[in-house]
Design a protein around this nucleic acid. Structure first.
Lengths: 218, 218
DNA sequence: ACAAGGGCGTAATATCTATTACATCTTCGC
DNA sequence: GCGAAGATGTAATAGATATTACGCCCTTGT
């Protein structure tokens, strides 16, 4: 009974449970998914589920937090490629849309909102790990631009909220309407980026030196 | 047994059930509210609930659709008072915020999203009666402005989505985070309106004649 | 006061599912 | 092969609640 092999065996089970649970949670929601179904799909047994996750809520936590990541990485990636603010913002818009409107992500958001009624702390932690972090990261980006000499129409944290809001509102609509008549065309995305560019004021800084080293730029 | 009195008696019961149900749904959510609790609070009996609403879902529908109204009225009211586009938009922002961030409305939105998994049609109808109608009404407002000679940076339907999105994203954040660190100050609201004004391009039409008769203006 | 229709209250039904208990079988190092 | 740790499968527990059934009592109009 080497720890390693034991670990492997349990880990494989664990993975199987998580995959099965995610698939079912996404399709049926949390309440309508029974532990029995998860076991049927993943193999193994109820006893093991309880050993690994404690209870039903435990497996939900693992599933949700495994999938829910902040957009901070996306912000960094988009910024590192350089270019004008418009270019950076558009790249960011593309990856934000792909990330936030991923049907699995939307389905999990639905579940988190549903559970937020009886388990506020759970929802709050989710919010922290996704929205709050993304906001911080966006705010930093805009602050860096500002330090680099770009004049903005509003403080960075306000702009961060507004930019993220462009996508959050879509997630919300999707969560309710289940994609009735949703248009995710590139044209629409471009219009939004353009709108943000105009509203934030970065357009008026066409010739500003934008180095992403940020605060020490200029 | 005049129809009138019968009607009154039943109607009063009906009202009591609806009020009790709403209060409980808002506080506990749909699943955790039992019909027994509703009856305890409203008086009357289970049998009457079933006679009036058919089943548990029936009473939810009544509660939700009674409270969920579109913002079309708000749009009309804000526009009728006249003024510059900035003024109109700011008035609209104030009433949108009050309407959409009403805690009862947010709580019902949570419920609709939760139920949208198992009852897509319900959620879709809700979306139609709220978001879609509000969007149409906003689009009309912007189209009227455009017809009145104001140049806009984007088509009216895109702008309508963007403006509504400013508030929807707040509803979404509220729905998940339950108002952790939410700032609904007037300053913030003003910044948003200003942002929209800049992004949409209406600022560049300072001297345009804006009569709300719309298409026949100018 | 009366007759009756209909709401009231209670209890029974019926199902569903999280959670626990337990005996059995696998796996894995030795 | 062996022995033990632990996963497995099954079944029992236990509590909750939507929904139905039914007999009583009150309201109401004459």
């Amino acid at each position: 009974m080497t720890d390693q092999t034991e670990c492997d065996r349990l880990d494989r089970r664990r993975r199987a449970f998580i995959e099965a649970a995610r698939e079912l949670f996404v399709r049926l929601g949390y309440e309508r998914t029974t532990l029995g179904e998860i076991v049927d799909r993943a193999g193994g047994s109820l006893a093991t589920v309880y050993k690994l996750f404690g209870n039903k809520e435990g497996i939900l936590e693992v599933v949700v937090f495994e999938k829910a990541s902040s957009g901070a990485t996306l912000v960094r990636e988009a910024a590192e490629k350089g270019g004008t603010p418009q270019e950076i913002l558009h790249r960011l818009a593309v990856s934000f849309q792909a990330h936030f409107l991923d049907p699995e992500v939307v389905a999990l958001v639905r579940i988190v909102i549903a559970r937020s009624v009886s388990n506020k702390d759970f929802a709050r932690r989710f919010f922290e790990r996704t929205a709050t972090r993304t906001l911080d990261s966006l705010q930093q980006l805009f602050a860096d631009w500002q330090d680099g000499g770009i004049e903005l129409n509003a403080p960075p944290h306000i702009l961060a909220e507004l930019f993220l809001g462009l996508f959050v509102s879509d997630v919300h609509a999707d969560a309710i309407s289940h994609r009735v008549g949703m248009d995710n065309s590139l044209e629409r995305l471009r219009a939004r980026t353009q709108f943000f560019v105009m509203g934030s004021g970065v357009l008026e800084n066409k010739n500003a030196n934008i180095s992403f080293e940020g605060s020490n730029g200029l």
